[in-house]
Nucleic acid binder design. Structure first.
Lengths: 251, 251
DNA sequence: TTCCTTTGTCTATTTATATAGACATTTAAA
DNA sequence: TTTAAATGTCTATATAAATAGACAAAGGAA
């Protein structure tokens, strides 16, 4: 829609967002978009300052933020190298489990246990799971790491008494699919998923090691067993600059 | 995960995001989450200042930002009323068209024409549509309005020569489904969708009337005709605080 | 080596953000 | 009408962000 080439200044100075942070976000997006992929390093600070129409020191602040995220590494004389530039494609389809669709994109996949609680579920959870209002659910909280980098935090609700001890199985197996199997559920399918985006809150920033102001993609999903009973309600929040959600309808 | 009640201060002062903007985003999220739904108005400025641990003037800056977005309206003596608090649920399923899944949530649905262009398509578009690299596509740009509020901007690619004049049909019908029908496509299905989130750029802010720093949900979708030929590649960007994407697998 | 480029560090100045307090204005309720 | 509670508007001050310039230090290439 814009007639200008992308060299123009895309900085908004009345937004309540510091210029260095806007530049850091632009650069992160450009890196993830592969703009500097060939060389593997950023243009010089002076060149970036000219490109964004700001002072060199402002660019330095942006680069410092990216360096503290582990995205780039600067060294005098050599320039600023790009460390991480891939965005994981997370499949969202009728039958995808966490690990199966990712194994070709990463070498090390973990789903770690954070906590588990037995508590009455909120109204929306009960509705999603077709439970009577106030029913007790087992709530399991997890963090998923890909090659050691946290990509998502999940809060999973399971109806009791059927899955009242699924957390024990999960802690042993580190897999929800296997934990289900240990509870007698051979297979399950995704019934629905709702996706929103917003700024990460304090807890999400801590678990996902996100910079303040970062964005999370939140998915609300319901899984059914093969008899059509709702067996899991999950709220998963992905670090949006590390993933893209890939929705497929083939399965 | 946090043990504190939500009254605690969630403001990050080294984030590069102004405190008033953080508060505005928190309040918008709280409004959309229905926290003040019962009364239909915000707590007083002093109460909010105490809740966030900031000065009253900082809260005022946040409320001014929300007022300019049309989310709230303040008047002396009466307080700050909430104007808009609903988040549209946009269905993403195998067979959903823009208007069909939304008609029960809004009274007025429009899809307006912005521009159309005939041009060689980029590599990723050609791949998605199974075209030879550099093939010419018809590019249609649209804005979708729900009850007069813009919720998404779309850029749709159609292969030529088959759909070289679909823009004319769209301008007459204001519906992609009907425009397809005029081109001899009786029905079509969603083949894949990829979803990401990021900050809105200048053009998106203008078309969607978004505040600086706002978030958009971006979907990349491919539609096939019933013979399995890719006939449409669409990039749609939704104002994230006005919608949630509802993925369903029933159809 | 020498030269040039690149990042790192310092000082200084200007502008934007945030806090603090005082007081006016509007509205609804006692 | 009186009172209380709410937003609106001003002044003043402290802190953070951004700009500007100068020079040091490290790395790569001729």
């Amino acid at each position: 829609m814009s007639a200008l080439p992308k060299a123009g200044r895309v900085i908004d100075r009345k937004s309540g967002v510091a210029v260095w942070r806007q530049i850091a976000d632009e650069l992160r997006a450009a890196i993830n978009g592969g703009e500097f992929g060939g060389e593997g390093k950023l243009p010089g600070e002076m060149a970036l300052a000219e490109r964004f129409g700001v002072n060199r020191h402002t660019v330095r602040a942006a680069i410092a933020a990216l360096a503290s995220e582990g995205v780039v590494e600067a060294s005098p004389g050599r320039g600023t190298r790009i460390i991480r530039n891939m965005r994981l494609k997370v499949p969202i389809s009728r039958r995808t489990r966490f690990s199966s669709g990712l194994s070709d994109q990463a070498t090390r996949l973990e789903m770690s246990f954070v906590s588990s609680t037995l508590a009455p579920a909120a109204t929306d959870v009960c509705e999603a799971l077709n439970l009577e209002n106030g029913s007790t659910c087992l709530v399991l909280e997890t963090v998923s790491l890909v090659d050691g980098i946290p990509v998502s935090v999940g809060r999973h609700h399971f109806p009791t008494p059927r899955f009242g001890e699924i957390d024990l199985h999960f802690r042993r197996e580190r897999s929800i699919t296997k934990a289900f199997r240990a509870c007698g559920v051979e297979d399950y399918v995704r019934a629905s998923t709702e996706i929103t985006a917003r700024h990460a809150d304090e807890d999400e920033r801590r678990w996902l090691k996100l910079a303040p102001g970062a964005i999370v993609l939140e998915t609300l999903a319901v899984n059914n067993d093969l008899q059509g009973n709702a067996i899991q309600f999950s709220k998963t929040r992905f670090a949006s600059d590390r993933v893209s959600l890939r929705v497929g309808f083939e399965g």
